[in-house]
Write a protein that binds this DNA or RNA. Sequence first.
DNA 1: GATGAATGAGTTTTCATTCAT
DNA 2: AATGAATGAAAACTCATTCAT
Lengths: 210, 210, 210, 210
Amino acid sequence: MTKLSREPPRPTSSGKMTKRERTRREILAAAIQVMSERGAAQAVVHEIAVRANVTTGTFYNHFRGKAEIVEAVAGWFSVSMMDQADEARAAMTTGTERMVDGCQRYLSIARESPKTALLVLELAMASPTMLKTIGEFVLADVRLGVRQKEFTIFGEQAAVDLVEGYVMLAMRVIALQRPPASYEHSVVATILQGLGVSSQRAAALSGGKV
Amino acid sequence: MTKLSREPPRPTSSGKMTKRERTRREILAAAIQVMSERGAAQAVVHEIAVRANVTTGTFYNHFRGKAEIVEAVAGWFSVSMMDQADEARAAMTTGTERMVDGCQRYLSIARESPKTALLVLELAMASPTMLKTIGEFVLADVRLGVRQKEFTIFGEQAAVDLVEGYVMLAMRVIALQRPPASYEHSVVATILQGLGVSSQRAAALSGGKV
Amino acid sequence: MTKLSREPPRPTSSGKMTKRERTRREILAAAIQVMSERGAAQAVVHEIAVRANVTTGTFYNHFRGKAEIVEAVAGWFSVSMMDQADEARAAMTTGTERMVDGCQRYLSIARESPKTALLVLELAMASPTMLKTIGEFVLADVRLGVRQKEFTIFGEQAAVDLVEGYVMLAMRVIALQRPPASYEHSVVATILQGLGVSSQRAAALSGGKV
Amino acid sequence: MTKLSREPPRPTSSGKMTKRERTRREILAAAIQVMSERGAAQAVVHEIAVRANVTTGTFYNHFRGKAEIVEAVAGWFSVSMMDQADEARAAMTTGTERMVDGCQRYLSIARESPKTALLVLELAMASPTMLKTIGEFVLADVRLGVRQKEFTIFGEQAAVDLVEGYVMLAMRVIALQRPPASYEHSVVATILQGLGVSSQRAAALSGGKV
DNA sequence: GATGAATGAGTTTTCATTCAT
DNA sequence: AATGAATGAAAACTCATTCAT
């Protein structure tokens, strides 16, 4: 379902890219690959360069250092995951609906690409930006749900953190332990319940038997 | 409130310790210190040894390598945090009560010793054991609450992961962003609600205004 | 007093410069800037190019490599410092007078532009040309003074080296330690004495109380 | 005459050295070798280590980095050159005599070991300590000469800088241009004259025909 | 002549681990 | 059991220089 395209795509407008831009993308793609395999902390600049068919020197022409490529990868994931979501969610009008969709998207990354999911988790812990970016989307949905009287919460930050913290651990569990598919539904139902949705509605809306 | 004893003593039964055992403890204590300051990944074996007043050689007489000391520290935290909790919680008989207490303990570590909290989080992500150990305690409380009809959950694993994942992120937020003290209460209330406790009861039981 | 013009202009005869020549000057000017800031050894070709508003490629169209730009900067300083001196010194007829003026000029560079002075010193040590060029001027003054029976020396090379060696260290001292202004006078008087001028005359001619 | 022993000797008291101390000396000796060949700035840590029959790791166990070994070499030269001088000069009682001896020592290093001399010069420019250390000895002799009414100077710092600056350039000239041996005498005579000794006495005391 | 992306060898530095004493 | 000197494999980063366009 949720698919994280393997390379950093989007020629934006459409057509041409400068050579510089093209190289940058190749390095970014290579970095995502290597980091998925070894983890961001263990990723070695030299290997990223080789994978991108480029020398280390070129790498440093495009990124100031390792920290910067990590940030870039984190940024790419933030944007890329949101972009895809945004299209599909244009039609969704209730906070609940959007929340369910958002959580499921993240959980299915873990189901479909465990390595990628673990990388996202590592990046989220390392780069402050990522959680913040995602948190803004979550917050929007939380507010929508509250306005629609579907959610009863004890503070916006606490609500957002519930979603982020829980989903992250659930992703980890899915990636590492491969629980049965029903796990995702239980998680979503639990989140809804945590946001003040009644048990029955939560179960019903979570999209599966729990 | 929750206090993490600074050194890892506990002569267990009571009496004497062999010299070997004593040295081991000193190394462990030093490791906790250094890791709290720099993080587990950045901790340098040599510095741990120096802090423990031993040589690197001695370090390797006691621990097979860095991975092992990290595991040891993780293990010590798991046990130590539970030990303290256990005493205080002997008198608590409802799942809700125990759950509230447990969560608050962890959150107050973050409030009182941010560095330590961040270390615990790092260890939890790195060492599979830690989450498992803690999870067992959480699971016990969850089951108790369910039996007592206080909790309505969508699966035991989902419930445990809610608690663990959420509390971990909340610890991070507390350690890094120092939100007002009411944050902890909101978190606890949200957890209870996620476990199926009614909004009113959750607010009341969480021990503060939310 | 002594002013080192900031940019390396001098259209020589007067009129037009080819674009090539103009670019070369801009690079040279940029090189002087960068080297003054970081020192010649630490100056980075890329930064020189950027400062000159050209690309590295262009840099290499004008200079064979880093060694050559260093030489060029050294050469520019040699010529530029002498040029200015020459005008002012046209009227000076005694060796002593000229010697005093020459030394003061160099010392005041250190007083007014410590960074520039340190660069000149670095270049003088690195590029054999510079000391030789300056040495010829010094030698002329020494010979003049000897012919006029004002100097009593023990060999021309020894006399020239006295002036060059001493002035260079004095420049360094001035640039780095900022001694009181009387230091320059003491230095000049000492040089004169070293060239055989009597103590009284040396003090009087050095242009200040010593 | 002046001989700079090739290795960093002096077991100080006499007998044993710890292994650590022995290794340190070997690294220091290797560093002196390599720096003499390539210059201090061009010396590569790895080569120093290899030359000392040690790995780079060991190098870094003994010196914090390249800057520190440069300082150590500078320090060794300062001490070593002074040590030798001190013995020989115990019997010298006049400032003039001591000054002549001191200058000749340095000049003969350049004559006998040009590479070493150039290294000393590089170190003197790079490490502030070296000139300061040597300057103290020079100052002592200057003061002695002044007290004995042999020197007439225009300030102590100016006098010391005359000696240091001039001798350094003379060393360079000797090392690079190999002038006839009489050059050294001319230099010494010029220095004495610069310190206020009469031309005749200067010539006589400088120890050779000038 | 200018561009500027790419090169890649070179250098410093770090640290977990070993092992002879 | 302890010592602590030595190891050596990594790894990040720099920068003078080249060359296709």
